[in-house]
Write a protein that binds this DNA or RNA. Structure first.
Lengths: 229, 229
DNA sequence: CTGTGTCGAGAGCAGTGCTCTCGTTCCGTA
DNA sequence: TACGGAACGAGAGCACTGCTCTCGACACAG
């Protein structure tokens, strides 16, 4: 890797600056991001932005990938910061880290987990970073299973076709994990997403004031569901 | 209620027609609904639509309320069509009805359960219809509790502040339901929302082909969680 | 029958994404 | 070191959007 030319470095800085301003607009105005407004804030004309992003959707895609990576990094860091054998500690740490990141970055959370933008199809680049949080979750389950701390549910609680589907998924993200346990892990992941979405999108504004404790309680229910000791 | 004048009846029909066309556009183009395009399809000019809806947001709000009511009606009809004592039958019926409606009306589902439109605050009119599906769910739990078929979880699995919050919610939508059972019902409701959202928003496009069975399995896990016999 | 209020059409304003053109500046290569 | 191509920013312009205002036509209540 040779030293990047001044132009390349300036270009990289420009891209970062555009994304930073765009993130601010996102937080202020929501998903209907105005490329012209971003350009104005940068002191340049809208057509100049097109030197860096071929379209508004491409800019949004870049922000989406960044958001996935930021959430994934936060979750992985939380998991890495706990003692590996303390499964419940890891579990709660991961759940809390995901919620914390979402509460700190609600606009970006809405961007990646809200309704997809109409004509917008998620590019291939987004599927890998999008899998990081659930992979961490099932990683805890796999550790528990291999160490014997977690007893998997009976395999026959799954119908054959579903078990086959889950076996394929298991091969990709958590080889060796029993399908019935993976199914419960996915239930927990679905629950985590639903809990955060309800809170971020204001569906808990009905007198549920102690949200930290409520979240922890639901996290505990899911820990029980997957069989953490 | 006197007979409505011709003008009033024509106006009501016009409102319905606008909403019908708008729903078509919603299904085709997603949430960025163009009022002008709707007007074009109706053979009139955009300013004429403003005689019926004061703004695009008001039109969207009307569609949102209709969507909430349609989903609520579908769920309630499913619950009413089963035998009251068969709690698990009712449970699965409600879950399936909600999913069915969402799969049949993905754009409207995204409208009410996707990321909220930026500057858009849900009007008061939407909170009551929005509560209909969860109310049906906890209704099953309350029936099971009062009939003795469902044994509530130990009350001390909840911290005091959360139990107080849940007691207030319980008073509103399911008086007499133990808080710990309500908490599990809300977990099930969160799970239902998450399951549908993952499927509608394409987050299950990873080899999970037998979605009906997968959905039923997760529904069963939630039935176990809330303690249905 | 007459005045009031509703209706639809049209023009217009400010904003949007995006394209194209035109000088200017940078930078690898000869 | 000089040059030619590439990258860059500015500006004009197109088609579109939500929304407002005005104006003529019609319906309806008194």
């Amino acid at each position: 890797m040779t030293a990047p030319s001044i132009r390349a470095r300036v270009r990289a800085e420009m891209i970062d600056e555009i994304k930073a301003i765009a993130r601010q607009h996102l937080a202020a105005d929501g998903a209907n991001l105005s490329l012209r407004a971003v350009a104005r804030d940068l002191g340049m004309v809208s057509s100049a932005v097109y030197r860096y992003f071929p379209s508004r959707d491409e800019l949004l895609t870049a922000l989406i990938i960044d958001a996935y990576d930021a959430l994934g990094a936060a979750v992985e860091a939380a998991d890495a910061g706990t003692t590996p054998d303390d499964l419940r500690g890891r579990w709660h740490g991961v759940f809390r880290a995901a919620r914390r990141w979402a509460l700190d970055n609600p606009a970006e959370y809405a961007l990646i987990y809200g309704s997809p933008v109409p004509g917008y199809a998620a590019p291939r680049d987004t599927v890998e970073p999008a899998q990081r949080p659930p992979v961490v979750l099932v990683g805890i389950l796999r550790d528990g299973f291999t160490s014997g701390q977690v007893t998997p549910p009976p395999a026959d609680e799954l119908s054959d076709p579903v078990r086959a589907d889950l076996a394929a998924i298991s091969d990709l993200i958590a080889p060796g994990l029993p399908e019935a346990l993976l199914a419960r892990g996915m239930a927990a992941w679905t629950q985590l997403f639903g809990l955060i979405s309800f809170e971020i999108f204001g569906r808990l504004n009905n007198g549920l004031d102690h949200r930290d404790e409520y979240f922890d309680h639901q996290t505990r229910l899911m820990a029980d569901l997957v069989g953490l000791p």
